[in-house]
Nucleic acid binder design. Structure first.
Lengths: 149, 149
DNA sequence: GCTCTTGTCTTGACTCGTTCAAGAGCAAGG
DNA sequence: CCTTGCTCTTGAACGAGTCAAGACAAGAGC
């Protein structure tokens, strides 16, 4: 795979060192939205050859804290990462196969994003996860189940 | 702790056998909202004496699938359980100390089920987690406590 | 280009929440 | 009371993620 200078600029813009593992991880996250860590490790290794899982974990943490990627953890699933950051979008997760899709912020007025009683908390983010059934699992409902019911 | 016949009725109503561990776990979940599994195990053992952690895990799963308790898993936290079921309420989680509080849905029914673009998914539940800072951590924040702990 | 500094990657072991498996125990119905 | 089958105990195993120490390389300065 050819080097993507664009991603290097992104890393530099975040004041992060430009290394091959970092570019590869960032590229993998862009190429595979909502991929879990293991998938990303395999994608990175397909790109670079041999990379330790620890490096991927470390890079993902660095990218997450730098705000370049976002970490999502639906219940019953492992951590997943996506490169879409900055916009306030949410996710819909299939209960049967675990598929994840993006959902733009539901309503303009966002009724649920305004807590009726915040208990004194200072709220800075509202995370919404829609649970349901994806089109594939809806048609063939007795398909293979990956997650817990 | 005195026996709570009410909980026995709840278990019977769910077609579950009434055993001491089950009553104790259900009671512990009622007494300690948003408690993690380990806290519940300790609470149950304080009540009954010696109970295997496996029994608690098994009971919690049975109660969850029966709809008597609800399992919540904020990112970066272990599984927690609450007895408030049936109403569509959400949670606010403190980024610093992990404290959880209930938040009633802004609207009575379930408006959060309305996604602007459902990608063909059949959505049956919307889970909302508000992230912020609890009152206690807000106060200590002024002492220079910063960063994502 | 060369060296230095500092942050990054490799290797390997380890933690901890959770689950699996086999057998003993007990609740509920007859 | 006895049977039946679910439930609890015991003990081990699993796996995502983390910790620690040292080798290594990116970027800065010369």
């Amino acid at each position: 795979m050819t080097v993507t200078p664009d991603l290097e600029q992104v890393l530099k813009g975040a004041e992060l060192r430009v290394t091959r593992p970092r570019v590869a991880v960032l590229s993998a996250v862009h190429a595979h939205p909502h991929a879990d860590t293991d998938s990303l490790i395999r994608a990175v290794r397909a790109d670079l050859g041999d990379v330790s899982h620890q490096a991927v974990y470390d890079v993902l943490r660095a990218l997450t804290s730098a705000g370049l990627v976002r970490r999502i953890e639906p219940s019953g699933s492992v951590a997943r990462y996506e490169a879409r950051v900055g916009d306030n979008h949410h996710h819909v997760v299939c209960r049967h196969c675990g598929a994840i899709a993006d959902v733009d912020c539901a309503v303009d007025e966002t009724p649920c994003l305004t807590a009726s009683n915040d208990n004194g908390f200072v709220i800075d983010e509202a995370e919404v996860i829609y649970w349901g059934t994806c089109p594939a699992c809806s048609t063939s409902d007795r398909h293979r189940r990956r997650g817990n019911t």
